[in-house]
Amino acid sequence: MKDWMIDFAELAREELPPETAERLIGLLRPAIRLSAAEAGETVVGRLGGLPKLPDGMAWPSLSDGDRPLSFLAELDCGALARYEVDISLPDAGTLLFFATTDANEHQVIYVPHGTAVAERPAPDDRVEVYAELPLAATTEPTWPPRDHPVLVDVFGSLQEAEETVWHHVLDEDTLEVFEEQLRLFEDGGKDGPPHQVGGYSDALQSPIEAVAAHAAGTGSYGDPAFQEEARQWVTLLQLAEDGRTGMLWGDDAWLIWGIRRDHLAARDFSKVHLHVAGH
Score class of each variant (00 low, 15 high):
G48D: 11
P194Q: 11
P17Y: 08
Q205G: 11
E186P: 00
T20L: 14
P141F: 06
S206G: 03
L72V: 11
T138K: 13
R126K: 04
G278M: 09
D262E: 09
H167A: 13
R183I: 13
S70A: 04
R126I: 00
S201P: 04
G192V: 08
W254D: 13
E14Y: 14
S201I: 01
G278P: 00
L135S: 02
G217M: 06
K52R: 15
L248V: 12
D223M: 03
S206M: 13
G246S: 04
V272M: 01
S70L: 01
W233C: 01
T164R: 14
M5F: 08
G65A: 09
G243V: 06
M5R: 15
V150A: 10
S63M: 11
V165D: 08
L158P: 11
L248S: 07
A58E: 14
P112S: 05
Q238Y: 01
E105V: 12
V117I: 15
G222S: 11
W59D: 09
R260M: 03
K52G: 12
R146L: 11
H214K: 08
D242C: 03
T218K: 13
A39E: 14
H263P: 00
Q196F: 06
F178M: 04
F185K: 02
R23K: 15
V108A: 03
A216G: 05
G156M: 05
L236M: 05
A103S: 10
D76L: 06
A31G: 14
V276C: 10
Y221K: 02
S270E: 12
R46F: 11
T101P: 02
S220H: 07
P17H: 10
A215V: 09
T101G: 05
Q227E: 12
P224A: 03
D7N: 11
E119Q: 12
A225M: 08
L151E: 02
L72R: 09
Q196K: 12
G45M: 02
G217S: 06
A103G: 08
E38R: 07
I87V: 15
R260E: 05
F185Y: 10
G199F: 04
P134T: 07
L34P: 10
R67G: 05
Q107I: 04
G278K: 14
E74W: 04
W4C: 14
D55P: 00
D125N: 11
T218V: 07
P144G: 05
E209H: 07
E119I: 11
L80R: 11
V169G: 08
A103M: 07
D7G: 06
A81N: 09
M247H: 01
L255K: 09
